[in-house]
């Protein structure tokens, strides 16, 4: 665990977070940060596609897809129940927040892939497709939780399903991830060789740069939003990842996933979205309070997972695979 905590990726994240908490004026230009995010998603999409082109699909792969969809649909139900019982959040805010915890954080996933690589633990390329698939079902559950049994507000603008559908299915992270995956699959190992100088060697350094920006965002979000949250929602942001990861571990054991893949599924289930779901919630549930769900997912759960969650999930997956695998 100490190796992961002291890795440059985590240390740069911590640097950004501390700088923001100490009100440093440092910032990463917006367009540059967005370019970094696209680069990282393209890189892991491509690498996953190349690995998939070398792997035969088995029944287990389809089982993982099934488990991922169940997790993404189901986790918001648990998150919603926990929030409503403990936090005093309104139904809409609890549902919107719950949606974030059924969906995934792609940056946490990228950091976990790097941590697995450092630990020498192999993982399957198709998990990247799983990450993309888990972005969306949670949004459907969150909307159902928020809107069930409610009368339509005559004053509210009609929900444009096309607009929402585009945001859910064609948001930037899904397009770049799935696009990279397909291109990597088509290009195969030989085609990827020419791209390696751009997508392999600089990856670690660019990830550090991106984590610095993520640290700044997380620290700033926490500094501005923690007072409005209260203790119960902050506690939720710390225990909900453990609940999601535990359920993912149990399901991974049931389908006999190897340790590396189990760890990644735990990371996906234990992470909270900050790209796809906030955008969908602003369109479909604009009355929900973004300072609640963004502060929780970006300011509480994301740092927790980067610093403690990822090493914990990896250690747990290795232990479970050894004990029951």
């Amino acid at each position: 665990m100490l190796d992961t905590l002291l890795s440059p990726v985590v240390l740069f994240f911590a640097l950004g977070a501390f700088a923001a908490l100490l009100r440093s004026p440092m910032s990463v230009p917006q367009s540059f940060a967005k370019g970094l995010a696209i680069y990282l998603m393209m890189a892991i999409g491509l690498k996953g596609g190349v690995e998939m082109s070398q792997t035969a699909f088995s029944g287990q792969v389809f089982a993982v897809f099934g488990v991922a969809i169940v997790l993404s649909f189901g986790l918001p139900l648990i998150a919603y129940a926990a929030l409503r019982k403990s936090s005093g959040l309104s139904r809409t805010d609890a549902a919107a927040t719950a949606g974030h915890y059924g969906s995934i954080s792609i940056v946490t996933f990228v950091a976990a892939i790097e941590a697995l690589r450092l630990a020498g633990l192999p993982s399957s390329g198709y998990l990247i497709a799983i990450a993309a698939i888990m972005e969306t079902p949670a949004i459907v559950t969150a909307l159902w939780l928020a809107l069930r049994g409610q009368k339509t507000d005559a004053d509210a603008p009609a929900l444009d399903r096309g607009e929402l559908g585009r945001e859910i299915l064609l948001n930037a992270s899904i397009v770049v991830l799935i696009g990279g995956l397909v291109i990597g699959f088509i290009a195969g190992k030989d085609g990827f060789v020419r791209l390696e100088p751009f997508f392999v060697a600089p990856f670690q350094g660019i990830l550090c740069l991106f984590m610095l920006d993520m640290g700044l965002n997380a620290g700033r979000g926490l500094r501005r939003g923690w007072r409005a949250l209260g203790l119960a929602p902050i506690a939720f942001g710390l225990y909900m990842p453990l609940i999601g990861a535990s359920i993912a571990a149990a399901l991974s054991l049931a389908i006999r996933l190897p340790a590396g893949d189990m760890a990644l599924l735990m990371v996906l289930s234990g992470s909270a979205s900050y790209i796809a779901v906030p955008a969908a919630m602003r369109l479909a549930l604009p009355q929900s309070d973004p300072s609640v769900y963004l502060t929780l997912s970006l300011g509480v759960t994301f740092p927790f997972n980067i610093a403690f969650g990822i090493p914990l999930y990896i250690a747990t997956a290795v232990w479970l695979s050894g004990a029951f695998g």
Binding site: K34, A37, A172, N217, I275, P278, A279, R282, L294
Partner: peptide, 13 residues
């Protein structure tokens, strides 16, 4: 509270 332009690619905030 203060807000500022985010850097994530969704532009949701």
């Amino acid at each position: 509270r203060r807000w500022s332009r985010g850097t994530d690619i969704s532009t949701a905030t």
